[in-house]
Design a protein around this nucleic acid. Structure first.
Lengths: 146, 146
DNA sequence: TTAAAATCGGATAAAAGAATATTTTTCTTT
DNA sequence: AAAGAAAAATATTCTTTTATCCGATTTTAA
């Protein structure tokens, strides 16, 4: 459902937020080692999030990434929309393009109603979970993996 | 969420089932024209479904595809598993590989419980909707699109 | 035996994923 | 202040996967 890029991005942001208090900025190397992700690929993703003002990035010695926006105000949905776009949230499950509940000129597919309800549930979940929530969980509860 | 191949396959099977009563076999050309799908690509997908005994295929004049298994006993999940595999139903939302509820050695991710519930809902939906249901809907209800 | 169909193998294109090399910025040290 | 080093940013290239197309072959009913 979510692309690799998107999952990497989400995990990295949670990690950055979870270390914010203790150590300020976190270098790309530290992140990719901790999460076991390919460094240059992750760098590209974090650059994208920095351009979208989710993260702050600092070059030079002791540089690295930190949260620019308040983690409590960044939702999963924000990150997903930046990296994967919002097609998923608008599309029908068996057709290209918009779902009939977005484009009223399209007739619904045979499982429109049931799928629509589940899709709404997903959107709500993504909209309600903030980076703050998840970073906190990761910090105080060691039985959780980022 | 579902690949193009998978969505094409589902729609084609519904179409074949919906025409079964009236006209028996349906040719690949007729299907791809009706659903506006690329003919040779669709052919490959249908061959795959034929190998997995969902469809029957007949060469020669008046050949074409028809349902091999009873449409009432073919679920969406059956088709999805053949074409896209079952990774989606086993995976965590932010990690590669199995979810912690499949592999007990893995610690859950920070949104494991909430996502798990929604994922189960999707699986149930895919398991409960049969090709028969959807073909019937398409036949008797012209305000639905395959 | 011919024409209509599916089948099969490979060719091509586009997108996603990943790695390498270079450049730019900024801190630190002299 | 200048030089050097550390870090991210950018650009380029490579690989893999997904999507698509095409030509040749096989099958089979009329």
């Amino acid at each position: 459902m979510l692309s690799n890029s998107c999952r990497y991005g989400i995990r990295a942001v949670i990690y950055i937020a979870s270390r914010q208090k203790a150590s300020g900025k976190t270098g790309i190397k530290a992140i990719s080692e901790a999460l076991e992700l390919p460094t240059p690929y992750l760098a590209k993703i974090l650059q994208q999030l920095a351009r979208h003002k989710i993260l702050h990035s600092a070059k030079g010695p002791h540089g690295g990434f930190s949260m620019l926006r308040d983690p409590a105000k960044v939702t999963l949905l924000d990150i997903i929309e930046i990296i994967d776009g919002s097609d998923f949230f608008r599309n029908c499950i068996i057709h290209d393009g918009n779902c009939s509940c977005i484009d009223k000129n399209i007739l619904p597919c045979p499982i429109h109603d049931e799928y629509g309800a589940l899709r709404s549930g997903l959107i709500e979940l993504f909209k309600n979970r903030t980076i703050y929530d998840m970073a906190k969980k990761a910090n105080e509860n060691s039985s959780v993996t980022i």
